[in-house]
């Protein structure tokens, strides 16, 4: 589904990603871990098409299409979703309005009929229950005066409504207490399927107790330094990142 080859990306002339290779197949959950400043969030933003990052080398294929040639909205319509580390507050547009516009843009793209207000509200109510969001919140401005936890749950709600093929979660666990973390993980687990893939970017292993990954990759200095199964996450939890930084980059990261 997703194939990243030798990806280099910089911001304001400073190279952050220095040759990332990663292959993600449908149905898989990959976790990207790594110390601060290793390029985790950059990778997530580059996948979604953030223009502040310049891709200087390499390729990203998504379902065989060249993702780098697509606009952020084209990527979204093709099935890429980014759950933001810092969701933006947009007063004046309700989440309901925005989410229905987004859903209908996608349905139109797929040649499906647009969903009307009544059907949309029952859909959003069902998905809001997954992540324990009070539907009344969705009539407020997008993320407007939401708590940190509500913002993250709102990201998962949007994912649940838009049903992407590839979901990239950028530190969705940061700032969440254990109860909120479980709610978010539960929402993600409900979405897991044979046709959907996840890239879960996180600093801490604790999220991976609830969203159990198929593969764990450690990003260090803009390259994947280690890849393994979920047991790699435990090792990182015990020993920190120092040992990975010393070892040479693992060959065959997948």
């Amino acid at each position: 589904m997703l194939e990243i080859r030798n990806l280099h990306a910089s911001v304001e002339g400073k190279e952050i990603l220095r040759g990332v290779d990663l292959t993600v197949r449908a149905g898989e959950v990959h976790s990207i871990m790594g110390p601060n400043g290793s390029g985790k969030s950059t990778l997530a933003q580059v996948l979604a098409g953030r223009e502040t990052y310049e891709v200087t080398e390499g390729a990203i294929l998504f379902d065989g299409q060249n993702l780098l040639e697509m606009e952020p909205d084209e990527r979204a319509l093709a099935g890429v979703f980014l759950a933001f580390q810092y969701p933006v507050e947009i007063p004046g547009v309700t989440t309901n309005y925005f989410l229905r516009a987004a859903l209908n843009a996608k349905r139109k793209h797929l040649g499906e009929e647009e969903v009307d207000a009544v059907d949309f509200l029952s859909l959003v109510k069902e998905k809001a229950a997954w992540v324990k969001i009070d539907p009344a919140l969705l009539n407020r401005g997008i993320n407007e005066s939401f708590s940190g936890g509500e913002k993250k749950r709102n990201e998962i709600l949007q994912m649940a409504v838009l049903e992407p093929k590839l979901a990239v979660l950028d530190e969705t666990d940061s700032g969440l207490d254990i109860d909120a973390l479980k709610i978010v993980a539960d929402g993600v687990n409900r979405m897991r399927s044979q046709s959907r893939a996840f890239v879960v970017v996180t600093h801490y292993q604790r999220l991976l107790n609830y969203i159990v990954p198929d593969y764990v990759h450690v990003l260090v200095g803009g390259r994947i330094a280690q890849s393994g199964g979920k047991e790699l996450a435990f090792k990182l939890e015990e020993q920190g990142y120092a040992w990975v930084e010393k070892e040479p980059a693992a060959a065959g990261a997948r």
Binding site: A48, G49, R50, E51, E71, P72, D73, R75, A76, L77, F81, L82, F84, P87, V88, I90, P91, G92, V93, F98, L99, A101, A102, A105, K106, H109, G141, Q158, L162
Partner: peptide
Amino acid sequence: FYLRSRGMSAAAARSLLVYA
């Protein structure tokens, strides 16, 4: 970028933010 990442075109996102 937030709005575009959900599938809205650049023009629609801009218009929506002005409207908001």
